[in-house]
Amino acid sequence: MSITTALFQHHKYCDEIFADAEEACANADWEAGAAAFQLLRGQLETHFSSEEELLFPAFEAASGMTSGPTEVMRGEHRQMRDLLAQMQGAISSRDSDAFGGAAETLLILMQQHNMKEENILYPMCDDHLRSSDIGAALAERLKQA
């Protein structure tokens, strides 16, 4: 198991709860939708902060790259947090269209983001951080969420 396996698997888990939230809100099942969305938002927040507080600083320290890929990833986390806030607003005002539009945008952004991490950044992290124990810390943090 590599350092980033837990993060990789967590991406798939977030995809699943995204699909649940999107389906419920599209059908105007707001109670289930709100519950699924809270779970999604919480899980994504845990994922983002685990990367920003544990993985990225460790990678930056080990590789010396502070303004490269991690900076792009942080920027995309900001964009996704903003879209999540828009989705929250749409749930509060029971607006299926606004929710669907923001969800669609989040999905593509999230998938592109995940692909960049899984194909480029995570392999680099695995390379640079091979001897560290950061993998266990990441797995622990994602498990507690």
Binding site: Q79, D82, A102
Partner: peptide, 22 residues
Amino acid sequence: PFLNWLHLQRLGAPMSAVPNMK
């Protein structure tokens, strides 16, 4: 729709000012 969104939000507007894909 995604390219519209992506390029608009790169113009530096506050994110919530950029309309979503739909």
